[in-house]
Design a protein around this nucleic acid. Structure first.
Length: 313
DNA sequence: GCGGCTCTCATTTACCGAAT
DNA sequence: ATTCGGTAAATGAGAGCCGC
């Protein structure tokens, strides 16, 4: 099949919808067809490619190896047509009166949004950012519905329906008030375990990954409090005998404000990856592509206050 | 465990309308 | 007149549920 005159390009749209939905009825709805019409399209596709392409199984229409081979090329071709042929794609940041909706925790706001905001201010002076706190369970729905355009944070089990891109690795350090605790950095394991702890947990869980690591070593720490707000931690620690394991960027940004000391954790903890996630809905949106690049560049840069501190010393 | 029933979803068939 | 791609309706296949 090399003669395009014999090939109905609409069949590629049908193929793409079937690949995305794995269900003839939903694929039909996706491209505004009736279900039998989609079934017809599928049978024509089968004839054209000489392959069943999708096998009906109990859970879904499972793509054959041939269909899986074809999918990336067909997806690229359709994306290219949408982008460069059918749509006026120009995005002019200097004129854009747009609001970028971002889902992020307070830690992310502090870690990356200052740089994003500064870059946005200079490149797109009329653009704005609306940050919403994200519930991991509703993240996909929020991205799909447009409640948010981009999510930034820690996504341990990213959904295959969303695109996930690593921004930076964040490690954990210990914050404490040296005077109130009567110890100084770097903390020994003994001194660390001797202190009560404040942990960040969206669900109010008092035991986390650090506790499991400590328990594995046959030790135990006392978690005094769980808070859903990273930013509350420095202020809770100020003048109080307790410690908290927090992301490094957060610690570097606010330890001076609250007069706290920072120490490496005396327990080996991996830290976590901070990524951004978006829905296929915004995959080719030029404004969103531009904004993602801005976030990407900001994620690569050092946190603002730590850079200033480095400059001083 | 088996058979019958129901439901969902894909496929087939018959037919229609637009384009050529 | 023919072709193409659509719809409506009928049919088929498979899974899940329920009573025996």
């Amino acid at each position: 099949m090399t003669d395009l005159r014999l090939f109905d390009l609409n069949l590629l749209v049908a193929f793409d919808a079937l690949m995305a939905e794995r269900n003839v009825t939903r694929a039909a709805r996706r491209v505004s067809l009736g279900q039998p019409a989609m079934s017809h399209a599928l049978s024509r596709l089968r004839e054209l490619f000489g392959d069943p392409l999708f096998i009906r199984t109990a859970e879904a229409m499972r793509p054959t190896t041939r269909a899986l081979e074809l999918a990336p090329s067909i997806g690229r071709v359709l994306a290219e047509i949408r982008e460069s042929v059918l749509k006026d794609r120009a995005f002019a940041p200097e004129q854009a009166e747009i609001t970028f909706r971002v889902g992020a925790s307070d830690h992310i706001e502090l870690a990356i949004l200052p740089a994003v905001l500064a870059a946005l201010r200079s490149a797109a002076p009329k653009a704005r950012i609306a940050v919403t706190s994200v519930d991991r369970d509703r993240l996909g729905a929020m991205l799909e519905s447009g409640a948010i355009d981009l999510a930034i944070g820690y996504f341990p089990d990213p959904s295959s329906a969303l695109t996930t891109e690593l921004l930076f690795h964040e490690d954990l350090v210990c914050l404490f008030d040296a005077e109130a605790c009567g110890v100084s950095a770097p903390l020994t394991l003994e001194a660390y375990l001797d202190l009560p702890h404040i942990v960040m947990s969206l669900r109010g869980e008092l035991n986390g990954v650090v506790d499991r690591l400590i328990e594995r070593a046959g030790r135990k720490r006392f978690v005094l409090m769980a808070t859903p707000h990273f930013l509350a931690i420095p202020f809770l620690l100020h003048g109080f005998r307790a410690a908290a394991a927090v992301p490094r960027r957060l610690a570097e940004n606010c330890r001076d404000v609250a007069g706290l000391s920072m120490s490496p954790l005396p327990v080996a903890v991996d830290g976590f990856d901070v990524s951004m996630q978006w829905h296929a809905r915004t995959e080719t949106d030029p404004a969103q592509i531009w904004f993602r690049e801005l976030v990407r560049a900001s994620g690569r840069s050092e946190p603002r206050t730590s850079r200033r501190r480095k400059g001083k010393r």
